[in-house]
């Protein structure tokens, strides 16, 4: 069990690596937008999971899309992990959350790894690599690192690479971060919940699963060679939803014995059974962004009956860390179920 003091240290480790503190805001995924929508489960979802939002009746949904970077400076066009936090408003005051990002796998296995990562992957000066060093890279058949974006003077790339070079479990996640790019729209990216959850079927069978959102509009990134634009994702989403709803399919992959159930750094093979659990329809950008974009607080451990957490130490740590962060920014209290 991750105690409160460790949860505070986790959040502090993130805050300590920010360009500048952002009191009253999320330390990472600071920039985000709240959206309203509806989820309808597929006709087979209820045979796999008894959770209320999979029973086939439409469920009201709140979604917060975000840029991964911490801080109030908005850089939509930078290569960055994006977030999609979803609240299924099930009956009464209860909710069930699903927090996903564009990163397929995480880069640390547990809290100790995270503390080591945060020590090594500090923000460091980031400058254009001199041309002669790029030539040396090319002679070694390496791809030179990208040029800095306008206004980008520091980042964690070098430190993260040093960490990955020492830890093979981290290499996939950090490699993916390096290639992740910037989406043309929040509605044109796939989002993965990275952790394993257990779902219970009506016949009592429990299955280990991983969830992903897949955009019906398809995945599309911006041109990485073009000058990145700092602000376009909110307006793009607002314009898109004024014209037509945006949809995502919720895909659930079922793990097998031997798959990594408690380690978010390890992917599951693409050969696992994959079930369409439902369709999310995003209807409009919320008018009250203070409530639906800022004060709303998600937690990956807030789950409807029928879905349970695995023993993934990172998932467990997020329970406390999200609460600490929520308290620090005065977000809506965590209502357990």
């Amino acid at each position: 069990m991750v105690d409160t003091s460790t949860a505070k240290q986790l959040v502090q480790a993130i805050i300590d690596n920010l360009e500048q503190p952002v009191p009253g805001r999320r330390p990472v995924h600071t920039i985000g937008v709240g959206v309203k929508g509806e989820f309808v489960a597929s006709d087979v979802a209820c045979t796999y999971c008894i959770a209320e939002h999979f029973n086939g009746k439409p469920v009201r949904v709140s979604v917060r899309f975000s840029n991964g970077l911490g801080g109030v400076n908005q850089h939509d066009g930078w290569s960055d992990v994006r977030g999609m936090a979803t609240r299924f408003h099930i009956s009464g005051e209860r909710g069930s959350d699903l927090i996903a990002t564009t990163l397929g796998e995480f880069f640390v296995r547990n809290v100790d790894d995270f503390f080591e990562f945060s020590k090594i992957a500090k923000r460091e000066k980031y400058e254009r690599r001199p041309w002669w060093r790029k030539v040396w890279d090319l002679l070694q058949l390496k791809i030179p690192p990208r040029n800095p974006y306008p206004d980008e003077t520091k980042n964690v790339d070098e430190g993260a690479l040093r960490y990955a070079n020492r830890h093979r479990f981290a290499q996939l996640g950090i490699f993916q971060v390096g290639l992740i790019g910037a989406p043309e729209s929040y509605a044109r990216a796939s989002y993965h919940a990275v952790h394993t959850f257990w779902v219970t079927a009506p016949d009592g069978v429990r299955r280990p699963v991983r969830f992903s959102w897949q955009p019906v509009a398809g995945v599309r990134n911006t041109d990485p060679k073009a000058v990145p634009r700092d602000r376009y994702l909110f307006d793009e989403l607002r314009d898109r939803l004024q014209r037509w709803p945006a949809r995502f399919m919720l895909m659930m992959t079922i793990g097998e014995e031997g798959d990594a159930l408690d380690d978010p750094t390890k992917p599951w093979p693409g050969t696992r059974i994959r079930v369409v659990m439902g369709t999310l329809t995003l209807l409009k950008v919320s008018e009250d962004q203070e409530a639906d974009g800022e004060r709303i607080s998600f937690n990956p451990n807030r789950l409807a009956p029928g879905i349970e957490v695995s023993n993934d130490p990172i998932l467990e740590a997020r329970l406390g860390a999200y609460e600490v962060s929520r308290e620090m920014r005065g977000g809506c209290p965590f209502k357990w179920r």
């Binding site: 796998e105 690479l161 020492r166 830890h167 093979r168 290499q171 996939l172």
Partner: peptide
């Protein structure tokens, strides 16, 4: 399916079973 698992295949072929900490150079992937 994942780029870094390709590195694991190469390591397996060489009999490299090293675990953390290692001294890899991810920039050599290309």
């Amino acid at each position: 399916d994942t780029a870094t698992d390709f590195l694991r295949d190469q390591e397996d072929l060489k009999g490299d079973r090293a675990v953390s900490p290692v001294d890899d150079d991810l920039t050599l992937l290309p």
